[in-house]
Amino acid sequence: MNMRLSYGMGFILLFVPCSLLVAFTHYPAFKALLNSFWNNGSSIRPSRFVGARNYEALLEDDKLMQVLSNSFIYAIGTVPLAIALAIGMALLVNSRLPATGLMRLSFFLPTMLPMVAVANIWLFFYAPGIGLASQILNAFGLPSINFLGSTDTSLVSMMVVAVWKEAGLFMIFYLAALQSIPTNLKDAARLEGAGSVRIFFDVVMPLLRPTTIFVAVNALINAFRLVDHIVVMTRGGPNNSSSLLLYYIYEVTFGFRDFAYGATLTVLMVVILGFMAAIQFWVLNRKAHYQ
């Protein structure tokens, strides 16, 4: 059991995961950073070193400003909503109601579907005139709404899809956390005369905090990472109203084939995400209660 590995063996064991990490994470990240200091070349116009010119372009890019504001609205809108819904659903399926198994399954179902399938389902919901949402509105005598074709509603429509898809996954984490809370804590609180609202906020919520940190970080990462539905449903339109940062990076890099500016945007995204993760851990960790 305590047999020491030789250095050679240790090196070999380390080499495999390290080379994978270097090849697929560190090298591309380093390369992106490097590319961001060169301009975009093609076969007939080789690229050359331009220093910080790509970063100056960031500041003058009106579209980037809109995309960033979309991304922040999207994150601020979807993360708390998905968490609140996940807690609500977890409480519901954790209670002693009939058919909780069926409820758990149906809440979790959207999570199991691939995002592209989800996007196609919602395309049908949203289609003006022929979609499900329009038919429900029409049944009440209301005019149909052009959800994806209007700059006012396209981003919100994307957020609804994301929350619908994500909340079920987070529910599972909350459900596990709820079931690990000892019942004697709640019994003691009840004995002291606390109502169920008081118990939830003063006993259950503090014990759920580590889960909340975990879920919040993941939800935030997903808010920046998942853009499959944008590709399928709106392609960032109309007039860039539903374009998110990662979609913009994809559009610039593979649509416009501007690898240099795409790399610059990627660096920006990594900086933003790193910064937010640091804040999140710092704020929430100070208040977290780990057992």
Binding site: L123, A127, P128, G129, I130, N146, L148, G149, S150, G237, P238
Partner: peptide, 19 residues
């Protein structure tokens, strides 16, 4: 014509459904 953005993909369907 309906105001706002109109998608390419739904167009044949809207025609077939009488929209």
């Amino acid at each position: 014509m309906a105001p706002g953005g109109i998608t390419w993909g739904d167009t044949p369907k809207a025609f077939l459904e009488g929209q």
